[in-house]
């Protein structure tokens, strides 16, 4: 069991790396830190369990490029990505590249620990798990067309103001749709909603389209294509 509680931290900032080590230690995780993507990639052959906590913004090889390399190597450990505050587009890219979750800097310890616990529990299931994807697609399909449009726009990284303008509604209304959308998806975190949206996209076409059609009609496909 002990080996499964290893967290591999990849971050170029010394202080952040060190503070993550302290925090993970305080939460009874074992932490191994790397100062660059390259250093981590070199260590990959010896790694067999645990999860990766990866900062996307790094010089030379950034987090996204490193994910690409990991996929190429057939690396199967779950990756949680750390992004800058409000950098949703990068988070979405990371999720599409296979990250199981993302957290925004600065984050609170509970959120970080929950994300790592979930990632460790996920190990072995694999991100592109068909069942998980189909389940995500089913949950996404329960959204109203407007809620789906708002989610799609959020996934595309648009701020509320822009979404309001694009949809011809007020910012306040966007916020209401956003809140209802999160409620319907059974989460209070945008990250979870985005994870579901990305996952749903990986669901087998037949499942996804059938669900989308019965739930909200043709609009959804038009909306999702705009992403």
């Amino acid at each position: 069991m002990a080996t499964e509680r290893i967290v591999y931290v990849v971050d170029d900032d010394t202080a952040v790396r060190r503070s993550l080590g302290r925090l993970l230690y305080s939460a009874d995780f074992e932490c191994v830190a790397y100062e660059s993507a390259l250093a981590f990639l070199q260590a990959v052959p010896e790694i067999s369990g645990g999860c990766v906590l990866l900062d996307v913004k790094m010089p030379e090889i950034d987090g996204l490029a490193m994910q690409g390399q990991l996929n190429h190597l057939g690396f199967r450990l779950p990756v949680v990505v750390i992004t800058g505050h409000g950098d949703i587009p990068t988070a979405v890219q990371a999720m599409k590249a296979g990250a199981v979750d993302f957290i925004e800097k600065p984050f609170d310890d509970e959120r970080l620990i929950a994300a790592i616990e979930a990632a460790l529990a996920d190990f072995g299931r694999g991100f592109a798990d068909r069942e998980a994807a189909t389940e995500a697609a089913e949950r996404i399909a329960t959204l109203s067309p407007r809620e789906r449009q708002v989610l799609d726009a959020l996934v595309a990284g648009r701020p509320s103001k822009v979404i309001a303008y694009d949809l011809g509604i007020s910012v306040r209304t966007v916020e209401v749709h956003r809140a209802r959308m999160l409620e319907r998806l059974g989460t209070r975190r945008l990250a979870e909603a985005i994870r579901l949206a990305v996952l749903a996209d990986l669901a087998p076409d037949s499942a996804r389209m059938a669900k989308a059609d019965t739930a909200v009609g043709g609009n959804v496909r038009g909306a999702s294509r705009r992403i």
Binding site: V16, S19, Y25, D109
Partner: peptide, 13 residues
């Protein structure tokens, strides 16, 4: 943001 992340982590730890 980096600094605050680190500081928050240290305090929480």
């Amino acid at each position: 943001n980096q600094v605050m992340t680190a500081a928050t982590n240290f305090v929480n730890a």
